[in-house]
């Protein structure tokens, strides 16, 4: 199997079969919090994609070429989180400069990308499971695409909920989780295709 095909399959695997939110359970908090309006969900997805891919590209070499040879592999979590925090700052400045309306639309959720489990989760699991650079990159790209896909679907579905009748206790988070359960079920059916 050529490297390119393997790469694409790895991306699809990380995106659909082992979906970051619905199967691996990263990024739930942001998923539930933001997923109300489609437009902000899309921009959130884009920002997260950017951060995850950049973080993967930066953190893997740091781990492989700096931390491991120096024997301080256990320092990885601290370094990763610093890198992610700085990247998010940089992306925030970038967005503020080029699209102030988007920046205002994202509001507090932009700095919250730092604490998004998906970002640290992908970067950490890449090095914990000893993947090589291309596999890590495929994992990162697939994860962010999967995150984008799910957050978009979720926002669309939740938009339809506004104003529907349901028990008071289920409003808000519980119904969102039940929706996620159904989404997870449909994605579960994708397993084993590749």
């Amino acid at each position: 199997m050529s490297v390119f095909v393997a790469f694409v399959l790895a991306i699809l695997n990380a995106m659909l079969m082992d979906n970051v939110v619905l199967s691996r359970f990263y990024g739930i908090c942001s998923f539930i919090g933001v997923g109300n309006r489609v437009k902000s969900a899309t921009s959130m997805g884009l920002a997260v994609t950017f951060v995850i891919v950049l973080a993967t590209v930066v953190c893997w070499p740091i781990y492989t070429f700096l931390l491991v040879p120096a024997g301080i592999a256990y320092f990885d979590t601290v370094i990763y989180i610093l890198v992610i925090a700085s990247l998010v700052q940089a992306v925030a400045l970038f967005i503020r400069r080029f699209s102030p309306s988007l920046y205002r639309g994202l509001g507090i959720y932009l700095p919250l990308i730092t604490t998004n489990c998906a970002v640290l989760g992908v970067v950490q699991s890449n090095t914990d499971t000893g993947l090589d650079f291309l596999s890590s990159l495929a994992n990162g790209v697939g994860t962010s695409l999967g995150y984008f896909l799910v957050i978009f679907l979720f926002a669309c579905i939740r938009e339809k909920f506004e104003g529907t009748n349901m028990p008071k206790a289920m409003k808000g988070v519980p119904i969102a989780l039940v929706t996620a359960a159904l989404l997870a079920l449909s994605f579960y059916g994708l397993q084993g295709i590749i």
Binding site: P174, A181, A184, Y188
Partner: peptide, 22 residues
Amino acid sequence: QQPTGAFLVLGIVIALIAVIVN
């Protein structure tokens, strides 16, 4: 035990707790 069940249980329990707290 699957991801679906996880979401389901969490959602229902949160709803139940909300009822109790209210």
